[in-house]
Amino acid sequence: NITNLCPFDEVFNATRFASVYAWNRKRISNCVADYSVLYNLAPFFTFKCYGVSPTKLNDLCFTNVYADSFVIRGDEVRQIAPGQTGNIADYNYKLPDDFTGCVIAWNSNKLDSKVSGNYNYLYRLFRKSNLKPFERDISTEIYQAGNKPCNGVAGFNCYFPLRSYSFRPTYGVGHQPYRVVVLSFELLHAPATVCGPKKST
């Protein structure tokens, strides 16, 4: 009989979030998941669920729940959905087409922007091929755009693959930082360890 609440607040209220290319994953298990708490945590810009209804979450049980978190800019949030393409979905964080879970995003301009520009958040701009779903690539190998090998040196047709967002508070919403948490629900042929409040007794 599990009584402890799932530590969603640790994920959502973390002081620092990860850069999207090096997104963070927390496995959540053996706890009571009260998803209604999430609705009250922040004024969400996005709370979209796929393959599951957000209002039914509190009635369900899962084997595992994974919470992935990272920062992107406002106009990239739409890429965090099944079947999307674009720089983020292709080279940084890719959801599977049959994704079961929820994408939660909110504006973090007050936390993640600086007047002089916050350069701490990076994204991958160049990659030889698209990522597979939930693949994480943290390599910093020089990207070869031409025929000549780069031998690890940046220059003509040889690019450092990561680029930094420079978040400034005066930017338009599309270029402001957004914190994203992706909850993916895993149903294996194994005992369910993460249940809503109704199912945990």
Rank of each mutant, 00 (worst) to 15 (best):
P197K: 15
K198N: 15
I80E: 00
P149L: 10
G117M: 03
C6H: 06
Y119W: 06
S69T: 10
R73P: 04
K26P: 00
K110N: 11
V77C: 05
C61N: 11
A42T: 10
N151F: 11
R73W: 00
R168M: 04
R163D: 08
T193M: 12
S164I: 03
V77E: 02
Y35N: 09
R163V: 15
S116D: 13
I88D: 00
L60I: 12
D75A: 15
K148A: 13
P191W: 09
C49Y: 04
S164C: 06
R163N: 15
T3E: 12
W23I: 03
T46C: 07
Q144M: 08
P82S: 03
P177L: 00
S53V: 08
V194F: 10
P54S: 14
V20W: 02
V181W: 05
S166D: 01
C31K: 06
F99G: 00
A105K: 05
D9F: 10
N24T: 15
S139N: 11
V182F: 01
C195E: 08
L188Q: 14
N109I: 04
S29N: 12
Q84D: 03
K56F: 08
R163E: 14
I104F: 15
Y165D: 00
V194T: 11
R27H: 13
G117H: 03
D112Y: 03
V182Y: 01
L183V: 08
C158Y: 01
R124N: 00
H175E: 01
F44C: 08
K94V: 03
N40T: 14
R168I: 02
V182L: 02
V32Q: 11
F160M: 12
F62Y: 12
E141L: 08
Y178R: 04
E186F: 07
N109G: 05
G196W: 10
K198Q: 13
N30M: 08
F45A: 15
Q176P: 00
N109C: 05
N107M: 03
F12T: 06
K94Y: 03
R73Q: 07
T201A: 14
Q144T: 07
F134E: 07
Y159A: 01
V103T: 06
D112T: 03
D90K: 14
A192K: 13
T15V: 11
P169R: 05
G174H: 05
V20K: 00
Y50G: 00
Y35A: 10
C195D: 07
N92D: 00
P169D: 02
L125A: 10
Y50K: 03
T3S: 13
P191M: 10
R25Y: 03
R168A: 02
A18T: 09
T15L: 10
N130A: 15
F8S: 04
R25Q: 04
